[in-house]
Every structure is written in structure tokens, then in C-alpha cells.
Simulated scan of single mutants.
Amino acid sequence: MTTTTAPNAPATLGPAAQRAGRIVTGLVTLFLGFDAVTHLLRVPQVRDASADLGIPDDMIMLCGAVLGALVVAHLVPATRAMAVVLITAYLGGAVAVNLVAGQPWANSGFAILTAVLVWAGAWPRDARLRALVRG
């Protein structure tokens, strides 16, 4: 299997790292996909939690659609690097909302952990992402 990398991009990591990246990506995809679907379906728990955070009811489906599109984009190799950055931004917004609303630190910590896992899953499999960070 031959991998094409961008000029000056770091070399592809080994098969064990790539396998671990796929596993982490799979788990994160399941979680974020579930979260997107619950927003799109406006399940009562999501509506209640959003109301507690001061998020208008009409924004719930929009958040689900944005997250769902980003989850799909991060599974496509051509858009993975962009999607990882945008998922990080989305989760950064979740951290900000939780902090402003006075939610427990664990809520923000969970969003930060999720962002770290998104990066951890993509890092070994995307040389463009590593090149982006390397500069």
C-alpha cells in the first residue's frame, strides 16, 4: 500500500500507530455521531440540557447538523485535516458555553478530552495534519 504525502510533510507513521489511530477515530466517531443524531432528533435530554445552558431550542438541530457534517468530513481523507480543526473549534465553543453557564468543570473537561481524542485518532493517519502543526 503506497501513501502519497504532501511535499515536506512528515513521513507516514508505522502500522501500529495507524491501527491505533483508526480505533480511536472509530470510538470518537461513534460518540460524536451519537451526539449529532440526538441533536438532530431533539431528544428531551438534549433539549433540557440546552435550555439549562441558555441555548435556544431552534439552535439544537443546527448544532447537530454542523457536528454531523464535521464527523462525516473527518472520515474522508481529503477533508480530514480541515474537519479535525473545525471539530476542535466546535468543541472549544462547547467549553466556552459550559464555562459561561457555570457548569461543572467535568463538562468542559469532557469536551477537551474529546478534542484531544479527535486529534489522536487523526494524527498517525494524516501527514497533512502533522505538517500543519509542524508549520
Rank of each mutant, 00 (worst) to 15 (best):
A65I: 07
A69T: 13
A17R: 11
L67M: 09
A9P: 04
L62H: 14
A78Q: 11
L70F: 02
V76Q: 07
W123I: 02
R134L: 02
A16Q: 09
T29F: 00
P104W: 11
A131M: 15
R47V: 14
T29P: 02
H39C: 07
F34G: 15
L99R: 14
V37Q: 04
V85E: 00
M1K: 12
G68Q: 06
I112K: 12
L91V: 04
Q45F: 15
G33T: 04
V133Q: 03
F34L: 14
W123A: 03
T4G: 08
T114W: 09
R130H: 01
A81W: 05
T88G: 14
G68F: 04
A49G: 07
H39A: 06
A120V: 01
T2I: 09
N8Q: 15
P15V: 14
G68V: 06
R19N: 13
V118Y: 04
A115D: 00
V84D: 02
A106V: 15
V72G: 07
I55V: 13
D57W: 12
V71E: 04
G54K: 02
L62M: 15
D52A: 11
T29S: 11
A69S: 10
N98D: 14
V118G: 06
I23T: 08
A73N: 02
I23V: 13
F31T: 09
A36D: 03
V100W: 07
